[in-house]
Simulated scan of single mutants.
Amino acid sequence: MDDKHMQIGEVATRTELSLRTIRHYEETGLVTPSARSQGGFRLYTETDVDRLMVIRRMKPLGFTLDQMRDLLDATDRLDADDDLATEGREALLDRVREYERAATEQVEKLRVQLSRAEDFAVTLRVRLHEKAPVRP
């Protein structure tokens, strides 16, 4: 059962997101706290943490807030509605597949960038080694 509630500070620690970022995602409708304490504090569940982790993983890949919202909507609908008509389920799966393809493509681009950055760092290291005086 998903009934353990966490306050925003614990969620921030678990997701490595700032309180401000979590609040921003709430304001933009990407995540909604599952409950509020009697004192009005936001309370989150594991499902909410999972949702924030999806957002956190999408952000460095360049996905927009609208794209994050669209993917979360598709996955929410797939998770919630076992009675979806076949064509409705396929349409949602196609949306998720498109995000998977876009993520894979972006990961490949980042790998190329990382490789170039590593080559650059090696070039600088070699240059420093060639030009720096030998230390005993």
Rank of each mutant, 00 (worst) to 15 (best):
S34W: 01
L84T: 03
D79Q: 14
S18D: 05
R135L: 15
P60I: 05
A132R: 12
P133E: 14
F120T: 11
A85R: 13
L78N: 04
E46S: 11
R77Y: 03
G88F: 06
A102P: 00
M68D: 01
L30N: 04
R14S: 09
V11I: 08
L114V: 09
K109Y: 03
R42S: 07
A132D: 07
E105P: 04
E130D: 15
I22G: 01
P33L: 03
R116Q: 15
L71I: 03
V49D: 03
V11K: 05
R101T: 04
R125N: 11
L114H: 14
M58P: 00
D70R: 06
H5C: 10
Q67H: 06
M6K: 08
R23I: 07
G39I: 04
A132I: 05
A102N: 01
D119Y: 09
R127Y: 13
M58D: 02
V112Y: 06
V107Y: 01
R116K: 12
L43D: 01
L30F: 08
D50V: 04
L61R: 01
I8P: 05
M68V: 07
M1S: 14
L78H: 00
A12D: 02
V112T: 14
L43W: 02
R89A: 07
T13A: 15
A35E: 15
E98V: 03
D82V: 10
E10I: 09
G9Q: 13
G62N: 02
D3G: 04
F41W: 09
L114G: 05
R125L: 14
A121D: 08
L19V: 15
V49P: 00
F120L: 15
Q113A: 15
A102W: 03
Q113F: 14
R116C: 06
T13W: 08
D81T: 08
V54R: 00
V49W: 00
V134Q: 13
L110T: 00
M53T: 09
D48I: 04
V112L: 12
K4T: 14
S18P: 00
M68P: 02
T123H: 12
R69F: 05
R125D: 13
E46M: 10
Q106L: 04
V96W: 02
D73I: 09
